[in-house]
């Protein structure tokens, strides 16, 4: 399927914003798909990490409605494998931060079952809250 996208100033602005937040130059991505092929969370994602990269390159703010960057576990497999030396994990974090800074959380702490909360180690809660609540 071919989709024609006309880039406007606001698209470039979004790309710039994500690059600034992540400290990574998304434009360097050559769409090789290594990140997608290495990602342990792929099955749970709605777009692949490389598609996420492409949407950021194209300044498509709609990427913020995808699940991929929330499902990312910050395992840094893509980080060590990207042939262009980009860190897609940082791009995912930037996308999370855009949402969290709009006060849109991914998880609701009060929805965690008390029985489950009792079992979970502190490390899991601290990490999840840092990644998924703002």
């Amino acid at each position: 399927m071919v989709r024609k996208i006309k880039l406007q100033a606001k698209n470039r602005e979004f790309t710039r914003k994500i690059s600034e937040l992540s400290g990574e130059v998304a434009m360097l991505c050559e769409q090789c798909g290594t990140c997608a092929g290495s990602c342990p969370m792929l099955a749970e994602m709605d777009i692949t990490p490389s598609q996420m990269m492409r949407l950021v390159q194209l300044g498509q703010e709609a990427v913020l409605e995808n699940k991929t960057f929330w499902v990312c576990a910050s395992c840094y497999t893509c980080t060590v494998r990207c042939p262009r030396g980009i860190d897609p994990a940082k791009i995912a974090e930037a996308l999370r931060q855009v949402k969290l800074r709009q006060a849109i959380d991914y998880i609701r702490i009060d929805e965690i079952e008390p029985e489950e909360a009792k079992k979970l180690p502190a490390i899991a809660l601290v990490a999840a809250f840092r990644k998924m609540t703002g």
């Binding site: 749970e44 576990a73 497999t77 991914y106 998880i107 899991a124 990490a127 999840a128």
Partner: peptide, 20 residues
């Protein structure tokens, strides 16, 4: 041996982590 276990995703999605 290097594959992520799902890490903190165990909080919102224990089934996913159980699969991993």
């Amino acid at each position: 041996k290097l594959r992520c276990c799902g890490s903190y995703q165990t909080v919102p999605n224990k089934d996913l982590v159980a699969d991993l």
